[in-house]
Structures are given as structure tokens and as C-alpha cells.
């Protein structure tokens, strides 16, 4: 399938989930763009030879950056933006196929889909955690002063 169509469907998929999750109207457009951005990053990384893990990792890094930037610009929790941005990446179909193989006793399928799901999930989670960690580190003072009780 052409890259353009994939990007279109990814954007529409993000928009669909944003609507389903009751996204306030002013966030709808930028949130769908987040889906376009992550899938674009994924395609570009894959095109440049990145494997499943790395491509998802890069896409998640870009998606999370987008979410953090939009959260600050629009004064809203980053959650709204990263959940919608990651919609095209989430391993929904491979998770399903993993369990389908398990239920059907297809051990080859179980292994390959299972590994696929694992790599995608780990890639996305690593991307989110990296950006979250960096932001926490550079954010002004440590927030938790030593707590003292009476």
C-alpha cells in the first residue's frame, strides 16, 4: 500500500479514537496530526533500515515529544496527546494474532507474533520512558524535598 494512504488511514484512526475518548474539540486536529507524525516517523525509520524495535522506539520518541509540546502549548495533560499519537503504533493486531495462534495451537505463529508484539510494546514503552525521564531530569528543582513527620 502506498505510504500516502497508510498515513491517511493512520491519521483517521487516531481521529476516530480521539472522538471515541471524548477529546475536547479544540484538540481533535492536533491530536490526529500526532498519529500522522508517529506513523510517518515509523515509516521513515523502517525505510532507513531500522528494525521493528527501533522504528517503534523512534516513533514513540517523536510522538511523546509532540505530546509534551502540545500539552504545554494547549495547557492539558500530555496523556490526551500521547495516547492518540500512539494509536497507529499500538500492537493491537499483533497482540490479537498472538492470542489467536495460541488458541488455535499454531506454535510458529505464536512465536513470531508474540515476538513482534513484545518488540513493538518494548519499543514504544522505551521511547515514552526515555522522553519522560529526560524531561523529569531537566525540570527545575527536584520536586520531592525530604519529607519530615512530627
Amino acid at each position: 500500500m502506498s505510504y500516502v494512504l497508510q498515513l491517511l488511514y493512520a491519521t483517521l484512526g487516531s481521529l476516530g479514537f480521539a472522538l471515541l475518548f471524548n477529546m475536547p474539540t479544540r484538540h481533535l486536529l492536533p491530536a490526529s496530526l500526532g498519529g500522522l507524525l508517529t506513523w510517518g516517523t515509523y515509516l521513515l525509520s523502517a525505510h532507513l533500515g531500522a528494525g521493528l524495535f527501533l522504528a517503534n522506539f523512534f516513533a514513540a520518541v517523536i510522538g511523546q515529544l509532540w505530546a509534551e509540546i502540545m500539552a504545554r502549548t494547549m495547557k492539558t495533560p500530555a496523556t490526551l496527546y500521547y495516547i492518540t499519537a500512539f494509536i497507529p503504533l499500538i500492537p493491537g493486531s499483533s497482540l490479537y494474532h498472538t492470542m489467536e495462534s495460541a488458541v488455535g495451537g499454531n506454535w510458529t505463529g505464536l512465536r513470531s507474533y508474540g515476538v513482534q508484539t513484545l518488540l513493538v510494546t518494548l519499543g514504544i514503552a522505551a521511547g515514552i520512558t526515555l522522553i519522560g525521564g529526560i524531561l523529569y531530569f531537566i525540570r527545575k528543582k527536584p520536586r520531592h524535598e525530604p519529607k519530615t513527620s512530627r
Binding site: 497508510q6 488511514y9 483517521l12 481521529l15 476516530g16 471515541l20
Partner: peptide
């Protein structure tokens, strides 16, 4: 919003 959202998401992913 819910109707449009779930329809759109399912349709987009079927084609995706």
C-alpha cells in the same frame, strides 16, 4: 462523537 469515533477507527484500521 462515540458513534463517529468507533466507526471511523474501525473503518480506518480495516483499510490500514
Amino acid at each position: 462523537k462515540k458513534i463517529l469515533g468507533s466507526g471511523l477507527a474501525a473503518g480506518a484500521f480495516a483499510m490500514f
